[in-house]
Design a protein around this nucleic acid. Structure first.
Lengths: 325, 325
DNA sequence: TTGAAAGCGGTACCAG
DNA sequence: CTGGTACCGCTTTCAA
């Protein structure tokens, strides 16, 4: 304790926290002394008093996923500036485990909880309603009246489709994931709003293989071939590009392809590199972090689902790269 | 507080913690009462006394990576059983940020720190030596005399190469990443120990494009074509498989290909799905978690670099799948 | 302007 | 076997 080094006892507290009034030089002396001996107040003790632990819990059921990771990074980044640390809790899809983790977080007096997942239309296998701390949902479904953040799928789809039109593509199709995914449905709807209600939408699974198969189907069934393909994710896009190349169709000369996710390692390594929609996940995480923080500090946050805009990342699979917006 | 509900004050503590001797029925009564009203002791207060926060910090500079995530999951999984929570700290490659996070963790009285990265031969941009808490390194370099865990690259490479031989491949080559990576070098050495010192090793970058280019080089330069290719990671393997197909060489009939990492989403989606080396990262994380825990509890752990064995995951890119070991 | 004292929510020791 | 009391490290109120 700095008391030994200094001359006083609790004055140190006031000095370091800039509280009560006191001689400026005393304060300075104590401050520099503290810095010198590297004094750091015990956050536990402090938390005991203030009932704030400067800690939030992060619950995720997405262990290997490309969604949660950027979201987590954003959260961590946003909160570290406020002296808040993040508890990482990987709960897989195990309700038991979820409960254990939530209890542990509660014991540790977290100021709030952020729940993240891999689908907006599924909730975590653990009930977070009625907890004594605020909860924010990011990329997973929360109970009615909760604060939820997600990417604006419609916006992303519109961005992609409009871009295809802008660079002169006329015959557009959309190849995407299962109808069971709300995001697949929303993207498809937005696609049709822009491309016309007759524009074909092919639902399948979220895989490269499906992208490949969809192209086969399109090319085999006769009829006008598309010159612009908007894919539901980067993996499908990759399958599409590969299939196109195998059939001798040139990308982007003959056909433009757009992906979704901007999953760097996939999008950038495809030949040619994919133009794709980026969901700003890190930003989403940052917002989520700031929101729990606000809630924890008693500020109020408007409940409901907030959709954050996407952005288009231009690479080479569309051509038209010179015509940036 | 349960005191109001019960009849006593500090007896509750003993009852709940199973400490000092007391009437069994009193204990039971208090316990059931506590369960009933959902009493949970405040971990902060408890930590203040015991000097243990039941918390460890996890430092990582790998935000999007496929290595850290499974490692993290393993850590979290191993520690939750011991009531220990994990602070997630994404520090990118920013020393400032690293210091901020480490200070925050120290303030919060973490019982220990786990550092993870993406390369065994690079250390995090923050100095963890001489900290007042134990540190364990996983998949990143620690200072001399530290406790470090990593995958056994040689073992993995041996596994792959021996498998190629076992299924009858004679002319083996190894296509891998840059010489600057210790793991690339170790794998290459192990490959040559098994395949013979004359077996060709091609160093490049860790990308699909390089895998592709390497095959072009091999097939263009004349001379005997390999019938077994061991790749330094799954991305290279994927490039190799694609290039092979474009040249009309059949995988696995004509050429067997093995990858490294078992990065599911890549390995399983390649056509054909990749046989590949799995580094048991989750297990590695689990071990790391258990080790800091041991250290935190005062048990001693033998310092030095511990290499965990790999395992071969058989899919279809090699053939010989019937001949499991 | 500074210091003494009371607690925050627990645990541990020791006298009843 | 149980309850009182001191104390963990810090903040805050209040008196000196």
């Amino acid at each position: 304790m700095a008391r030994i080094a200094g001359v006083s006892v609790s004055t140190v507290s006031k000095a370091l926290n800039g509280n009560g009034r006191m001689a400026a030089d005393t304060r300075e002396r104590i401050k520099s002394l503290a810095a010198e001996i590297g004094f750091r107040p015990n956050a536990l003790a402090r938390g005991l008093l203030s009932n704030r632990s400067f800690t939030v819990g992060l619950l995720t059921n997405d262990t290997y996923g490309r969604f949660t990771l950027p979201v987590m990074a954003g959260i961590s980044e946003a909160l570290v500036d406020h002296g808040v640390s993040v508890f990482l809790c990987a709960i897989e899809d195990d309700p038991e485990l979820g409960k254990v983790h939530v209890d542990a977080m509660l014991d540790k007096q977290v100021d709030g909880i952020i729940a993240t997942g891999k689908r907006v239309d599924r909730s975590l296998p653990v009930d977070l309603a009625g907890l004594p701390v605020p909860v924010v949902y990011a990329f997973t479904e929360g109970e009615a009246g909760s604060v939820t953040l997600t990417a604006d799928d419609r916006h992303g789809a519109r961005l992609a489709t409009e871009w295809l039109q802008r660079i002169g593509r006329k015959r557009l199709v959309h190849i995407t994931g299962p109808r069971e995914f709300a995001s697949a449905v929303e993207r498809a709807e937005a696609f049709r709003e822009v491309a016309g209600s007759a524009a074909p939408v092919l639902h399948g699974v979220w895989s490269e293989a499906w992208g490949h198969a969809a192209v086969d189907r399109l090319w085999n069934e006769g009829g006008g071939k598309p010159d612009g393909i908007f894919c539901g994710n980067d993996q499908i896009a990759r399958g599409v590009v590969d299939a196109l190349r195998e059939r001798g169709a040139k990308v982007p000369e003959d056909v433009s392809v757009i992906g979704f996710d901007n999953w760097e390692i996939m999008a950038a390594q495809t030949r040619p590199p994919l133009t794709t929609v980026d969901m700003n996940l890190k930003e989403l995480g940052r917002e989520a972090g700031l929101m729990v923080l606000a809630l924890a500090e008693g500020r109020t946050v408007e409940p409901g689902l907030r959709k954050l805009p996407c952005k288009l990342v231009i690479r080479e699979s569309c051509g038209g790269g010179d015509r940036r917006d």
